[in-house]
Design a protein around this nucleic acid. Structure first.
Lengths: 209, 209
DNA sequence: GTCTATAACGGGATAGAC
DNA sequence: GTCTATCCCGTTATAGAC
């Protein structure tokens, strides 16, 4: 028997992922979870706090796994290893709870206030670790370019999470996101190549070639 | 003097971009636009129709410019040219109306019903054109991998649009999205390299190497 | 075409019985 | 801890004066 608090958390996670935070009412959640409306404000103080709780429950394990994978790659990981350590946890770990996959995508694509207050707080440290790893693996890459490329990487990852449900329909069944290891492998190959690309801006400054 | 309908459209675009569709009320729009609440339901039938109208107004020029740039690259465009034709219009054209940049990002990251009904209808044809161009430029790339890579590209682009406003704060001022030509150049370099990357999945099947 | 007033509804939050 | 009833607010949409 799952307790009420967990039922609310699970259902909220599912509905937030499907319909977004603003479009999901507490009534939607309590109805589907078959719990009482008042229970939400008892266990969590408000809808905002519920959102925070839903997010926090999932971010922590992902970040821990990311750091683990980065550490496991040794003191001088390759670009491929860094990219994989960043992507794999958030895509692979999702297996037992597939609902939260598009949820994370939704979080990452909602640059609103609560993102500052919830997300940056929990991502900044990890992001810093990865930035340093990239700096070491790509010592000739300017810092600005490195951050832009990490930004592109995060975008590709977010998109994969967000659209995973409808991608088969979009591609006429050609792309299948359910094989998550394959998705990671494809993304790592694509993004690693991007990190290794020559720097376009500096080339433009050198003018001749 | 701008007419009421345009004022509503402009303001709705701005507020939708800033706060999302669900979180923006018609009252927010009419107050900021200094027009009457009833005018919205007069000029547009409903909030949903207003959203459609806001989106449609911007999609068409972008798609037209994309096809123009693709055509201008000749019958056999390079990967770089294709990527640039896909990215540049949506990022560069934004100059006169910067509000809609994050708006487009928001559209692309909201895989809900109206996206099916509004967006796929207007993107499918263009997407097909670009897919064919990539197929010609990368004849050895399997169709599945090609579609995945286009997906990654769309994700990176979306993220750039969505986060453009807060990126400077996130990176301590290092990354500046206001120089849009530079952003395009960086993204083209990164993503083109990704498209040229060897195919990881097939490598895994060949097992030995 | 424009504006005001209001209907009809659904939302979050709370009080209080059990 | 759980449930019911209710308050109060903001929302969309409409009706009708001007």
């Amino acid at each position: 028997m799952i307790d009420t608090k967990t039922k609310i958390l699970d259902t909220a996670e599912k509905l937030f992922a499907e319909n977004g935070f603003a479009a999901t009412s507490l009534r939607d959640i309590t109805t589907e979870a078959a719990v009482n409306l008042g229970a939400v404000n008892y266990h969590f103080q408000s809808k905002d706090c519920l959102i925070d709780a839903v997010i926090l429950r999932r971010i922590e394990p992902v970040n821990r796994r990311r750091i683990e994978m980065l550490d496991a790659a040794g003191p001088d990981p390759t670009v491929e290893q860094i990219v994989e350590a960043f992507l794999a946890p958030i895509i692979i770990i999702a297996q037992p709870t597939p609902e939260w996959v598009p949820l994370v995508g939704r979080i990452l694509s909602t640059p609103d206030l609560f993102l500052d207050r919830v997300f940056r707080k929990h991502l900044a440290a990890v992001s810093q670790r990865f930035s340093e790893a990239f700096a070491k693996a790509l010592p000739d890459l300017p810092a600005e370019e490195r951050l832009w490329r990490m930004h592109f990487m995060a975008g590709a990852m977010t998109h994969v999470l967000l659209w995973s449900r409808i991608l088969p329909a979009m591609t006429g069944g050609v792309c299948d996101p359910s094989d998550r290891k394959a998705v990671v492998a494809r993304a790592v190959a694509f993004l690693s190549a991007g990190f290794h690309a020559p720097v376009a801006i500096e080339t433009a400054c050198r003018e001749g070639n």
